[in-house]
Nucleic acid binder design. Structure first.
Lengths: 96, 96
DNA sequence: ATATCATGTCTACGATCGCTGACAAGTAAA
DNA sequence: TTTACTTGTCAGCGATCGTAGACATGATAT
């Protein structure tokens, strides 16, 4: 499943948690965090730390993958895809 | 690419950053974070916040996916795989 | 040699994390 | 009803984040 926002992550974790554990407390104890943190994470907390998130996902039997952006909005200005950026960079003479 | 630790994430981001941008500072400015934060992230900072990470990945033309754990080490104690947990939970008398 | 970068490493400092502990609302059994 | 459980919310607090700024090193030139 694609994770574009912290809310996506929260929904995913909640879905998975409700299938495997009986309560937020149960997952929290396994991961080693507070129930409050699990609750906030499921609500899309954008300040949650990646280390705790990875531990949580592992406890839920999941892992993260990185994949190229399918709906490209990489650069605000009308820049093209990543490969083009690469080409431009390689072609530039000096380093502004 | 599989991301199991924050170091995996750091390596991935650094590889991608060096291909697209000319410096840590350039990426940092685009994302809206400090160069120090980018540097620490590339070194595997486990306390980096997921919101900033997602913004960074987007700037690098990438997104995150969640996938089932292929090499299962889900529960420390002798518990079995996730599906079994599910079955056990479903079989328990008190459901809550 | 001199200049110019990129990267890594430090020191503060304000802002905020994640924690504990408590409480209320809702649900579901006994 | 009463009892037990889950979830969401709140306040307070120590610990730590992310930042700005400065500095040293190494590389790449000129």
């Amino acid at each position: 499943m694609k994770i574009n926002t912290s809310h996506d992550l929260g929904s995913l974790i909640r879905d998975r948690r409700t299938k495997i554990f009986r309560s937020q407390q149960e997952l929290a104890s396994r991961v080693g965090v507070s129930r409050l943190w699990i609750m906030q994470l499921e609500k899309g907390k954008p300040t949650a730390q990646i280390g705790l998130i990875l531990r949580t996902l592992r406890e839920l039997g999941m892992a993260l993958d990185a994949s190229p952006l399918q709906t490209p909005a990489p650069h605000r200005s009308g820049a093209a895809a990543v490969n083009l950026d690469h080409i431009i960079k390689s072609a530039l003479p000096a380093k502004p």
